[in-house]
């Protein structure tokens, strides 16, 4: 059984490696220009944002409207650090500090609001994101409304790939652990969860903080790739954009968030030339898709569940036969 699981991991690793190599080669050859790389960067950053918000909203069932706030904390922290220390090490420290700062704010917002049942979190996070935006608008270190310009660009395809895949793996692993199950049980039925011994406040704050942490990473990548920041980039609309990706892909589906992030970015860049009509077509598309697929593209299912069905069935039949032996003894 272990061999089969290993096998599955090996297969996933091979696919990932192939994706990485293809893009890397195309980039080196010069087939991918700055425009396409920009799309790829936005896709990767949106994947990180959507997957981390999905952990909070799709899996733990807590409605958060402040993801752009966490993103902006990561972005500004990383930008300020790399402006002062424009080295790769400075960038890495910037990403880590950005993520940590976002996580700390996550704990501070989450602790008081997540103790309660209901939608207090949505309002609190909405307020938090606005406060952060206005702080950045008025602080000297962030250069106010003019924003930060000329942030050293360290992010390339390799970094994007590393952080995106890392985020997906860590959050997927979390969900498939006892801690993740605790989070999901809160979404399913909070009263039953706490009656079964789940420390609901702690589980919610944990999931929320992890989500904030990865949003911080996404922000840091954004700052370092697009080398320009201003507070307006992280308004309420940005939070909604991320939420749209999550709902569109399916609440509670990591692969759904990934697919939706790719699709929506492609659609919106294809509509780029239509300028005025763009937002209308985009909105109509969303409405139509939500009418025909209200549970999102993937529902709560995962692609790996379909792709590796054969492997999983073999594993399960093996487990079944082992279990039966146990049952006989009991």
């Amino acid at each position: 059984m272990r061999k089969l699981i290993k096998n599955r991991n090996v297969r996933i690793a091979l696919i990932l490696l192939a994706v990485f190599a293809v893009v890397q080669i195309l980039d080196t050859v010069g087939f991918i220009d700055g425009y396409i790389m920009g799309i790829i960067a936005r896709v990767c950053i949106n994947i990180i944002l959507a997957v981390s918000l999905n952990l909070i909203t799709g899996f733990t069932g807590q409605f958060s409207l402040g993801h752009a706030g966490f993103m902006s904390i990561g972005a500004y922290t990383c930008a300020i650090i790399t402006l002062r220390y424009p080295t790769v090490l400075g960038f890495i420290i910037g990403v880590i500090m950005g993520a940590l700062c976002a996580a700390i704010i996550g704990v501070l917002v989450g602790l008081p609001t997540l103790r309660l049942r209901g939608d207090y979190l949505a309002i609190a996070t909405l307020g938090m994101a606005e406060i952060i935006r206005i702080l950045f608008l008025n602080m000297e270190i962030t250069n106010g409304a003019a924003g930060l310009i000329g942030i050293p660009q360290f992010v390339n395809w390799a970094w994007l790939f590393f952080f995106t895949v890392g985020t997906i793996i860590i959050i997927t692993n979390f969900i498939n652990s006892a801690h993740g199950r605790a989070s999901i049980s809160i979404r399913e039925d909070e009263i039953a969860a706490e009656s079964m011994g789940i420390h609901t406040t702690r589980s919610k704050v944990t999931a929320f903080t992890i989500g904030a942490f990865f949003a911080g990473i996404a922000g840091a990548l954004y700052a370092s790739y697009f080398f320009f920041l201003k507070p307006e980039l992280f308004g309420f609309a940005k939070s909604i954009d991320v939420l749209v990706i999550v709902v569109f892909g399916g609440l509670g589906s990591i692969s759904g968030s990934v697919v939706a992030a790719v699709l929506l970015e492609l659609i919106s860049s294809m509509l780029q030339s239509l300028v005025a009509l763009r937002m209308i077509i985009y909105a109509v598309l969303l409405v139509v898709i939500m009418i025909f697929r209200p549970q999102g593209l993937m529902g709560s299912k995962e692609i790996s569940g379909i792709m590796f069905k054969g492997v999983r069935e073999r594993v399960q039949s093996k487990v079944r036969s082992v279990g039966k032996g146990k049952g006989g003894e009991a």
Partner: peptide, 30 residues
């Protein structure tokens, strides 16, 4: 008040959570 959209096995596994001793790093890196 079951966890309706989860499997039968997961319902029972969640109730066993308080006996799980591994920390977050184990959850992240399996």
């Amino acid at each position: 008040r079951l966890f309706k959209d989860l499997t039968v096995l997961d319902n029972v596994k969640i109730a066993m959570n308080q006996h799980v001793k591994y920390g977050l790093h184990s959850a992240f890196f399996h």
